[in-house]
Amino acid sequence: MIAQNKAKTYGFILLGLLLSIIWFYPFYLVIVNSFKTKAEIFVNTLSFPSEGTLANYPEAFTALDFIQSFINSVIITVVSIFLICICTSMAAYALSRRQGKTSSIIYFIFAICMLIPFQSIMIPLVSIFGSFDMLNRAGLMIMYLGLGSSLAVFLYFGALRGIPKALDEAAIIDGCNRFQVYRYIILPMLKPTTVTVIVLNAIWFWNDYLLPSLVINKEGLYTIPLKMFYFFGEYSKQWHLALAALVIGIIPIIVVYMFLQKYIIKGISDGAVK
């Protein structure tokens, strides 16, 4: 029995190591090749650089117009996430505290919308926003609010099911109105779920290329993923600069994830329907 348990343990460890290698392998290729010249990348993609160079990074930084692209990405990501967290947490709070068919139907609509692929609605969505002259930054943030609301409401609703209504009643007896109950009692208790919503959506918005490419049409508003397209011309592809730019672009979101990762698992478990 002991031997079988050890064999299972070693088997899980080996499987974990194998999955880790498979998961980290693309990152290895990106980082290693970002220090190579364009010619060396095509000679041997898998090896370490024979003569590593840092010249790709300042050139990619300049070509990306990184400061402006970074600011655009930050504005879109932060404002979109703020709108999602405020609107969906209030919506989930209202739905969780009102028992009835209407609330159940609205929650069901939010949940079922998670199954709708964006590709099936992107053309009519962009056409409608374009007809109202609501493209570029403002339109993109509103679209993100709509597209990100389903999962956020689902997570918040599940977390709120674990918060007893007696807290609301006690606060109301003490003189709080509904908004004050939400602001000072409920919202702080939803911190793990809020952090989970922030991280999941930040990764999506920061790395998204498809939707911004359909909505943003002004040069000064381009995000980092859109500026990355600069390295892939019709007749040439500057892989050495693209990979360096990719490393520069993913550093901010990795830093955010590292600071907030301890809340993610708790937030997702709290968001499960209890």
Rank of each mutant, 00 (worst) to 15 (best):
Q4C: 04
N5G: 07
N5S: 12
K6L: 12
K6G: 07
K6P: 04
K8Y: 09
Y10H: 09
G11A: 15
G16K: 08
L18K: 00
S20A: 08
I22G: 08
F27W: 10
Y28G: 13
Y28C: 13
V30H: 10
V32A: 15
V32Q: 10
N33W: 10
F35R: 04
T37P: 07
T37Y: 06
A39R: 13
I41D: 01
N44P: 03
T45V: 08
S47M: 04
P49G: 09
E51R: 09
T53E: 13
L54Q: 08
Y57S: 06
D65N: 14
Q68W: 09
Q68S: 14
S69H: 08
F70H: 05
I76T: 04
T77L: 00
S80K: 01
L83F: 04
L83R: 01
I84T: 09
I84R: 09
C85Y: 06
C85N: 12
S89R: 12
S89T: 12
Y93H: 11
L95G: 06
L95F: 06
S96F: 02
G100I: 10
K101H: 08
K101P: 05
T102W: 00
T102K: 00
S103Q: 13
I106Q: 01
F110Y: 04
A111C: 07
C113P: 02
M114V: 07
I116K: 05
I116W: 05
S120M: 11
I123A: 00
I123V: 01
P124Q: 08
G130R: 14
S131A: 11
M134A: 08
M134G: 02
L135H: 14
L135D: 12
R137N: 05
A138M: 11
A138G: 14
Y144R: 02
L145Y: 08
G146W: 06
L147A: 09
A152D: 14
A152I: 14
F154Q: 05
F154W: 13
L155C: 05
Y156H: 02
G158T: 06
L160S: 12
L160D: 13
G162H: 07
A166M: 12
A166N: 12
L167G: 00
A171K: 03
I172H: 06
I173A: 07
G175N: 13
C176M: 15
N177D: 12
R178V: 06
L187V: 06
M189F: 02
L190N: 05
L190A: 05
K191M: 02
K191T: 02
T194P: 00
V195F: 09
V195L: 05
T196I: 05
V197P: 10
V197T: 10
N201W: 04
F205D: 07
Y209N: 01
L211V: 15
V215F: 14
I216E: 11
E219H: 11
E219R: 12
Y222G: 10
Y222Q: 15
T223Q: 08
T223F: 09
L226F: 09
K227I: 00
K227M: 04
M228H: 03
M228S: 03
F229E: 09
F231I: 08
G233N: 11
W239R: 02
L241I: 05
A244R: 11
L246Y: 14
I250C: 14
I251F: 14
I251A: 15
I253Y: 07
I254E: 03
V256T: 13
M258G: 05
M258E: 04
F259T: 03
Q261I: 01
I264H: 09
I265K: 15
I268R: 11
S269V: 11
D270I: 01
